[in-house]
Design a protein around this nucleic acid. Sequence first.
DNA 1: GGGATTTGTTGCTCAATATACAACTGCGTT
DNA 2: AACGCAGTTGTATATTGAGCAACAAATCCC
Lengths: 247, 247
Amino acid sequence: MTEIQSLARGLKILDLLAAAEDTVGITEIAEYLGMDKSSISRVMQTLAVYGYAEQEASTRRYRLGPQVVVLGQTLLNRLPLRDQARPFLQQLVDRTGECAHLGVLTQNQVLYVDQVESLATLRVNTRIGTLAPLHCTALGKALISFARLDLPEELNPFTTRTIVNPDVLRVHLEQTRLQGYAIDDEEYNYDVRCIAAPVYNHDNNVVGAIGISGPAGRMNLEHIPEMAAIVCEVARALSNRVAFRRS
Amino acid sequence: MTEIQSLARGLKILDLLAAAEDTVGITEIAEYLGMDKSSISRVMQTLAVYGYAEQEASTRRYRLGPQVVVLGQTLLNRLPLRDQARPFLQQLVDRTGECAHLGVLTQNQVLYVDQVESLATLRVNTRIGTLAPLHCTALGKALISFARLDLPEELNPFTTRTIVNPDVLRVHLEQTRLQGYAIDDEEYNYDVRCIAAPVYNHDNNVVGAIGISGPAGRMNLEHIPEMAAIVCEVARALSNRVAFRRS
DNA sequence: GGGATTTGTTGCTCAATATACAACTGCGTT
DNA sequence: AACGCAGTTGTATATTGAGCAACAAATCCC
């Protein structure tokens, strides 16, 4: 694996620009990458020429450029699942009162590609474009368990409830498969529970997962079965739609 | 201006991946850039490592990776104007029945950063993430005329109505400024007319523009004044909101 | 089914080029 | 007004990325 260093530098800088709160100066970037600021200056000029970065005229500092939006939306618009899922996400919100999300598998992570917010004052907001781990989110667990994928190598803990033992996780996923839906019981964020179910295409491949997230108070353990039933029902309806099956 | 070539190549490839309908093979890319496929192979590996491209397992061809969504959404979420504008765009749709858009200026182009669709059967759909020229779109003309920016160097024609003469455009923009709103009268797309007005912050700087787009039939010349009045009113209300002014 | 063709990956060499240093410019500060 | 700080530009050198060629793998096509 030969990695092209100057390209990799540029991409790392884009990541850095995204992680930064606001604009970033060339000196900071140079420090961060352990390089000379003159080199970074030229990298930034290149990124700017192609619209991936933008220099603020007044401060000469840099931020992400419009081209990243163009690319991001291009990819999102290319997911037909996304348009199809929208009304079903809305239905989930209407029927459960919690925020609904659509996730797909990429690079051993879940990518949240759509979201419908609930009207509740206290609500969970996972923005579109978020990447999250597979082993401790409901969407992620739905994806790996129903698509029968391998476990991720690293099972990092995020809360004390995160399942970090591969054997325990395997059993848990088997159980998930049997019950037809996945649950995240404060395994990624404290006070947040999620329920998710898979979406299939006409070849019976898992193409994504939809689910709801809410505060642990409302999503308490006795409500979960009925909410899960709704999630499963809507996910099944969406699968039928995706697979061109009628009803 | 010293451009870093290997980075530039990577960025060009991202643009290419976005322009492509579906996946792209390495040979095609190499041909397109006039390079050896081995070199491109390594570029693609680098892009893939950082999540900017993704290789389809079955065909070994490449597409955009999830990271571009992450970056794109990061930038969109960083625009506070976007969240603030949403209900005002909705109001435009409710009151005019046409699609409403929010645009900001970047790199001498308008970037469409939000959209609310109308319910009409025949409607104009300009997706988020679209970049469009300044001189022949209502949003673009609103941005340059009210922000008193220089004209773009190139005034490319898109329809027979596109204004390509700088002097004519200057007069037109002056008129736009006087009447308080900008019009695109089939200057970018045939059968589409748009109306837009600027949004100001508390320093009285133009931070964006909002407007509506519809088929020329409904947006006919006698309806435009009343629709323009609504656009101006809503844009003013949004400006007040943005500037923390009350009412 | 199997040879042929197309497509993507890897090893290796050499020339192109990206890097660091240093000098320069422009801003803001004290 | 002088200083200090941040970003840009010129230039020499060593790194590194490009191309060639061989390899691997998948697809085509008879």
